[in-house]
């Protein structure tokens, strides 16, 4: 049931991305190009999504369990550290270079030809680099202790 719901949620999420214009990199760049011909559309995507999601988080905060029975897994990290800052900045540079962030890139795979595919393969490689580096550095930390 959880897996089926995950599929349906991913599907609705993707439909929202397509309808909103997020799968069009030119539109995303248009939003990020405040010095050129600025396209404010994406602010409406964020606004609509945050409006609905914040109601859901309001309810989620008051219950220990999700409706399908599993525990609520809300993020617990609070510190604003170097990883968050550098990671956020690196992501923003990559986002600005092409206009793709992870969701829209995945939702473009089946229809967009080779370009989204190249991006997604490179993105997975980047995530793999993080995994390898993260495992090495946490192994170092364990040895140090």
């Amino acid at each position: 049931m959880q897996v089926l719901m995950a599929f349906i949620t991913g599907l609705i999420f993707g439909l929202g991305l397509i309808l909103s214009g997020m799968t069009d990199p030119a539109k995303v760049i248009g939003f990020l190009d405040i010095a050129g011909a600025w396209n404010p559309s994406l602010a409406f995507v964020m606004g609509g999504a945050i409006l609905i999601a914040s109601i859901a988080f309001h309810f989620a905060n008051t219950r220990p369990k999700a409706l399908l029975g599993s525990v609520m897994r809300l993020p617990t990290a609070r510190q604003i550290d170097r990883r968050l800052v550098l990671g956020g900045l690196a992501f923003g540079v990559g986002w600005g270079l092409t206009g793709y962030c992870p969701g829209p890139a995945l939702a473009s795979l089946a229809i967009g030809g080779s370009k989204p595919l190249i991006f997604v393969v490179a993105m997975l490689a980047g995530m793999a680099i993080f995994e390898i580096h993260d495992r090495c550095s946490s192994a170092h930390k364990r040895e140090a202790v």
């Binding site: 959880q2 719901m5 995950a6 349906i8 949620t9 991913g10 609705i12 999420f13 439909l15 929202g16 991305l17 397509i18 309808l19 909103s20 214009g21 997020m22 030119a26 539109k27 248009g30 011909a37 600025w38 396209n39 404010p40 559309s41 994406l42 409406f44 995507v45 964020m46 606004g47 609509g48 999504a49 945050i50 409006l51 609905i52 999601a53 109601i55 859901a56 988080f57 309810f59 989620a60 369990k65 999700a66 409706l67 399908l68 599993s70 525990v71 609520m72 897994r73």
Partner: peptide, 30 residues
């Protein structure tokens, strides 16, 4: 402003769908 490519209603509707998916995933799957 790039009025020709400005789609406030479609973008808002898409955003609401994204928000709905986020809400479902949170409340059903936690």
């Amino acid at each position: 402003i790039d009025w020709a490519n400005f789609t406030p209603w479609l973008s808002l509707a898409g955003g609401v769908l994204i928000g709905l998916a986020t809400a479902m995933f949170l409340l059903l799957n936690g």
